[in-house]
Design a protein around this nucleic acid. Structure first.
Length: 527
RNA sequence: GUGUCCAUAGCUCAGCUGGAUAGAGCAACAAGUUGCGGUCUUGUAGGUCGGGGGUUCAAAUCCCUCUGGGCAUACCA
């Protein structure tokens, strides 16, 4: 609908204009302040300009009214236009709020080190990325999801050491001395025992760190994939850091040819300060081993070689200082770094009944994603993560998400959906019975609810373009609230408007169902 | 120290590229159901938008500055 209005505005004004929702719903469905900006160009009062424009718009038959108020133009659609769209939505549920765009996007998220299970911070980025993916696909982007596996370098080496030491202490019953850095969680001991039972304890006797690292990493990756699957996330692609290194020399040569590299203190430095980084960064140490940044440079070259129109990375907010150097590297490689967008996912503080959520000893004093999923379920976890901006701190109490009343938004929304389902059952009617009912002579409440329910497309576009998924969760809460309020003040079954209201409710239910689906949550028919 | 993000109602947060009297949920207080799931609804109260300057017809929104926080500041990933 806003697209239709956009077209009409362009037609009469000759350019795209801002379209807003009026603060006061009674003013109309949409509004534009365009007369204010035209006032400067035309040197006329905005009110006069708005009045002149109003007369042009009145010729369009989709408008019930076009009003001018303090220079704002307010538009109200006719009920028959809304009805036509409602019928289309019910007949084309799968296409509701869909759109088509000629743009390919590579979305990278999670990319947690395969050295342990996912914790709650990872979960937030994972859920956010997955929802962005689903929404983006729905509105027509060609998006692929990707997980970058850091399976090279020191962390993996540490994993191997940790497994070996755990095995020596707990299986071979030797005295061991632990170094300063190693993975401390009890899962490491379990991992060692599992490896012992699948092979033999001899595997720990010749200190084959490389083998243990490899086995451990593979097992952790399986665990991570399972953690993700438990909240409905499946990646299109996994890409291994290690596998990329065979191209390092080619990439290094490319960087050198582009004047990005210099040698100092026997190390190779990337001159990233030239492109906005605060200082230059080492890419190859004096022992000839490339740094972590080198892997990311190869990876981003690999990404850009695959020629997407846009690259979105979701990173933990603690990595924000890393953005400048990667962008600089992308420029040195000769690509447009504006195509690379980094979205940050902030840390999460969890409470349970007002107290800090207990850490998992098993995982080494992290809040384990799996524990929270088992506690409150995937749907509740997804919803709470998606109801706040990704780059702000989030604090919530899991007990609040178990409540079965209006204080729990996911319950509240599902309740609206289930209630509509139950009303249809009670009335003994199906969607097909009311789909062609003509919506005429509806009261204002009903028209408002219908209009709101038809806003899904606009909300999805807005949520995706701004990378703010909470716009969708907020919208669904608001629709559920509007519905409950309407239902409370209007008798439906047995009233003369029964069929019309059923059609209206069917649209509301469709909006909720499609909206929740894009958040990775299945709407409940019964509760 | 430097960089960066943030500061809006008691709490958790919205507020779109500056635009119409600053919003929602929760908590608090007060009402409503002989009517379809009360797993609900309605109302009241609550804010000098951290302080101070500036730009503008218009600033919570943009700029400067101060204060108070988070994060980063590795040749670890």
């Amino acid at each position: 609908m806003h697209k239709k209005l956009d077209e009409i505005l362009k037609k009469h004004i000759g350019k795209s204009c801002p379209i807003e929702r009026p603060k006061d719903r009674s003013f109309g469905h949409y509004a534009t302040p365009v007369a204010f900006s035209l006032a400067k160009e035309l040197k006329k009062s905005p009110i006069i300009i708005a009045e002149e424009l109003k007369n042009k718009f009145l010729t369009e038959d989709i408008f019930e009214s076009v009003d001018v108020a303090k220079g704002f133009l307010n538009f109200k659609f006719t009920l028959s236009y809304l009805n036509e769209y409602a019928s289309w939505v019910l007949k084309n549920e799968d296409s509701f709020a869909k759109s088509y765009k000629d743009e390919t996007i590579l979305l990278e998220f999670v990319s947690a080190n395969p050295t342990g299970p996912l914790h709650i911070g990872h979960a937030r980025g994972a859920v956010f990325g997955d929802a962005l993916l689903k929404i983006g696909k729905h509105i027509g982007y060609n998006i692929s999801s990707e997980y970058y596996i850091n399976d090279a370098g020191n962390q993996i080496h540490l994993l191997g050491i940790s497994i070996l030491l755990a095995a020596k202490e707990h299986i071979l019953l030797q005295n061991v001395e632990y170094p300063e850095q190693y993975y401390k969680g009890e899962y490491i001991v379990d991992l060692a025992k599992e490896i012992a039972s699948e092979n033999s304890i001899d595997i720990f006797k010749d200190d084959n760190l490389e083998l243990l690292s490899e086995i451990g990493k593979n097992k952790m990756l399986i665990l991570i994939k399972q953690n993700l699957k438990d909240v409905g996330i499946v990646f299109d692609n996994f890409i291994s850091e290690k596998s990329l290194y065979e191209r390092w020399h080619t990439i290094l040569e490319k960087l050198e040819n582009n004047g990005a590299i210099y040698k100092k203190d026997d190390k190779l430095w990337l001159e990233s300060s030239k492109f906005g980084d605060e200082k230059d960064r080492v890419v190859v140490r004096d022992n000839d081993i490339p740094t972590y940044l080198a892997g990311d440079i190869i990876y981003h070259d690999d990404k850009f070689q695959r020629n997407f129109d846009r690259y979105i990375n979701i990173w933990g907010a603690d990595h924000h200082g890393y953005i400048a150097r990667v962008k600089a590297a992308v420029r040195f490689l000769g690509y447009d770094d504006d195509k690379l967008e980094i979205v940050l996912s902030q840390m999460v503080s969890l409470l349970k009944g007002g107290e800090p959520y207990k850490m998992s000893k098993r995982a080494g004093n992290f809040i384990l994603m799996q524990d929270v999923v088992e506690d409150i379920g995937s749907d509740a976890l997804r919803f709470i993560f998606l109801s706040k901006k990704s780059d702000t701190h989030l604090e919530f109490d899991v007990e609040d998400l178990k409540k079965q009343d209006s204080t729990n938004p996911i319950y509240y929304i599902n309740y609206a959906h289930a209630r509509i389902n139950s009303i249809f059952e009670k009335s003994n009617k199906k969607i097909s019975d009311i789909i062609d009912i003509d919506l005429t002579d509806l009261n204002e409440d009903a028209i408002t609810l219908l209009f709101e329910a038809l806003q899904l497309g606009r909300v999805l576009e807005d949520a995706f373009e701004s990378r703010q998924v909470q716009k969708l969760t907020d919208y669904l809460k608001s629709i559920a609230s509007d519905f409950h309020s309407f239902y409370n003040s209007h008798k439906v079954i047995g009233s003369e408007n029964e069929d019309k209201y059923l059609k209206l409710f069917a649209v509301v239910a469709t909006t909720i169902k499609v909206g929740l689906k894009l958040l990775g949550i299945k709407a409940l028919d019964k509760m």
